[in-house]
Nucleic acid binder design. Structure first.
Lengths: 211, 211
DNA sequence: GTCTATATATGGATAGAC
DNA sequence: GTCTATCCATATATAGAC
C-alpha cells in the first residue's frame, strides 16, 4: 500500500489493489490474500465489501474501460477528416496506455476467455450507436474522393490500432528484438505518436513509386 | 480428444492436450484435470509422464518457439535487402500464426510473468549470435544510401511486427471495431500479407507529399 | 467496520492395485 | 502403462468476537 492511499476508504484501497494484482497475475492467477495484503487490510474485510472474487474482478475489468470508451466514441462519431480522427485516436489511446501500460494485456487476455459476457457490458457504455460503421464508411468516401490512398479500410484501421497498442503488449519480446533495455524502451514509447503518424501519413498521402 | 489422435502414444496425446489447454486458459488457469480429460487419460498418468504442472508447461512453452526461432534467425542473418527481409519475415510469421492463432497471446502472456527464465532458454536455441543488431545496422545503411526512407529503424521494425502479430492477439476487440464476424475476420487475415507489405512499401519507398 | 479463526472447496500430487 | 482412491496444500468464503 502506498503512502498516498492511507486516507482512502477501505473499499477504495481494495479496488486499487485488486486492479494491480489482477493486471499482474490475471484473473485466475490473482490471489485474494495478495489483494488484501496489497490493500493493507485482511481477507475477511475483502469479502465484506465484495461478495466474491468473480464480482470483484468484473468491477475492476469494467473500470478499465470506463475512461476509454466514451473518448473513443467522441472521436469517431464527431466531425473531422479521417486523418484527423486517426491522429486524435492515436494521441488519446497512447496517452492512456503510457499511464497504464499493463491494461491492454489484461483486457485482451480476459476478453479471449469471456468474449460474450464482457463485451455486452462494455458496449452498453457507449452513449449512442457504435460509431465504427460510420467511420468505415467515411474512410471509403475519402478514398473514393481521392483524399487518401485507396486500400481496404479495415486493413488500414487494423494497422493503426496494431501500431498503437502492440508495443504495450509485446514489450518483453520487442525489447529483445530491438536490443533495448527498459529505460530505452520507455523513451522510444514517448516518441511513438510522431512515429506512428508519420508512417500512416506516408502510406495514405504520399505519391507511389511502385505502381 | 479428436479421432485422429486415437493411435498416438499417451505421452503425445497429453502434450497436444496440454498445449491446447494452456493456450486457452494460461498457465495458472489451466487445470490438470482438464488436460487429462482432453487427452482422454486420467490425472495420475499425467503425473507418471511429467513430474509436475510446471515442467509440463515449460515443455509446451518451449515447443511453441522451436519452429519459429530458427526461421527468424535464418531470415535476418542471411542475405537480402531490408525490404526483402521484411517480406520474408511477414510471410513466414503469418503462415505460422494462421496455423496457430492462439500462440502469440499465450507466449506474450507468460512472458510478462516470467521474463527472465523464459527468454534465456529461448535465445539459446538461436544457432549463432542474435541477428537483431545486424539487421538494425542494415536498415540504417539503406537509409543512409537513400534506398528506403529515413526514420527511426526501431520504430520501423516495431510497426512491422505490430501489424503482423496484433491482429491475432486483438481479435475479439478488432472484430467489434471492424464490424466483422469470425468468418469474415479470418478471411481478412488470409489477405493480410499483401495489405501489410503494401502499407510498408508505401511508407518506405514512396515520394512524400508532406515535407 | 475490522479482525481472528475456521469451514469448505478445489486442484496438484502420490500410493498402490491391476 | 494405466487406473482408482486418497492425501495434502492452497485458496475462497464464512462465522462470530470486538
Amino acid at each position: 500500500m502506498s503512502n498516498k492511499e492511507l486516507d482512502l476508504s477501505s473499499k477504495e484501497k481494495i479496488l486499487n489493489a485488486a486492479r494491480r494484482v489482477f493486471i499482474r497475475n490475471g484473473s485466475s492467477g490473482a490471489r485474494m490474500q495478495e489483494i488484501a495484503d496489497e490493500a493493507g487490510i485482511n481477507k475477511a474485510l475483502l469479502h465484506y465489501y465484495f461478495k466474491n472474487k468473480e464480482g470483484l474482478f468484473e468491477l475492476v475489468f469494467n473500470d478499465a474501460f470506463s475512461e476509454f470508451i466514451p473518448k473513443i466514441h467522441n472521436i469517431f462519431s464527431g466531425d473531422g477528416s479521417v486523418m484527423e480522427k486517426i491522429e486524435r485516436y492515436v494521441e488519446t489511446h497512447l496517452e492512456l496506455l503510457i499511464k497504464k501500460p499493463d491494461l491492454p494485456m489484461f483486457v485482451l487476455n480476459e476478453m479471449q476467455r469471456e468474449p460474450r459476457t464482457i463485451f455486452s457490458g462494455i458496449l452498453n457504455k457507449m452513449p449512442g450507436a457504435p460509431p465504427f460503421e460510420f467511420f468505415l464508411k467515411q474512410i471509403e468516401e475519402e478514398m473514393k474522393d481521392g483524399k487518401i490512398r485507396t486500400m481496404n479500410p479495415r486493413d488500414l484501421w487494423m494497422n493503426v490500432m496494431s501500431m498503437t497498442v502492440f508495443p504495450f503488449i509485446g514489450e518483453p519480446m520487442l525489447k529483445k528484438f530491438l536490443v533495448l533495455n527498459s529505460e530505452e524502451y520507455r523513451t522510444l514509447l514517448t516518441k511513438r505518436k510522431e512515429s506512428i503518424l508519420l508512417f500512416i501519413q506516408l502510406a495514405l498521402l504520399s505519391k507511389s513509386n511502385t505502381p
